[in-house]
């Protein structure tokens, strides 16, 4: 694997993890009695940037290397279901994760007064953010399993 491909893969992992961390920071901040709208806005915005970055570098790695080299290795091995089930699931989660995070950022930016005063809206947004974190962690775990199926 070339240095450029290693760079794509490592950035995909780092940015994806950063996205989950920013969203967790968002969750913790929103759960406070008086959430700070600035920190909510910045953490959701950073999560959007992280997921889009992870999307771009993951996509570059997938199209230029994974599909041609890694996928055949996994399919030939004992754990072919890792590609057919987990990678296929991860690809779909991966497609809409940035859009869900953009929706969260827009809700936070437009409804900051509502989030401070309206408890029901706050609870709904908390649940929404929790679902995105859950999907992010699922994608990360799938990534772990896929990495484990790659052997020499």
């Amino acid at each position: 694997m070339s240095d450029t491909l290693i760079f794509y893969l490592v950035l995909h992992i780092i940015l994806g993890s950063a996205g989950i961390i920013f969203l967790t920071a968002y969750l913790l901040s929103l759960s406070k009695k008086e959430p700070d709208s600035k920190s909510l806005k910045s953490s959701s915005f950073l999560a959007v940037l992280s997921f889009i970055g992870s999307w771009i570098f993951g996509g570059l790695y997938y199209t230029s290397y994974y599909g041609k080299v890694v996928k055949p290795i996994i399919l030939k091995g004992q754990y072919s279901w890792v590609h057919t089930i987990l990678m296929e699931t991860k690809e779909h989660l991966f497609l809409f994760l940035p859009f869900l995070t953009i929706a969260l950022f827009v809700i936070t930016a437009l409804g900051k007064k509502g989030l401070e005063k309206n408890e029901n809206l706050k609870k709904s947004v908390l649940r929404f953010a929790f679902i995105i974190v859950g999907l992010g962690i699922t994608a990360a775990l799938a990534g772990y399993m896929i990495s484990g199926a790659v052997t020499k």
Partner: peptide, 10 residues
């Protein structure tokens, strides 16, 4: 992952 240690480790 970069060393491709595979299922035995992961």
């Amino acid at each position: 992952r970069l060393k491709m240690l595979g299922p035995d480790v992961f």
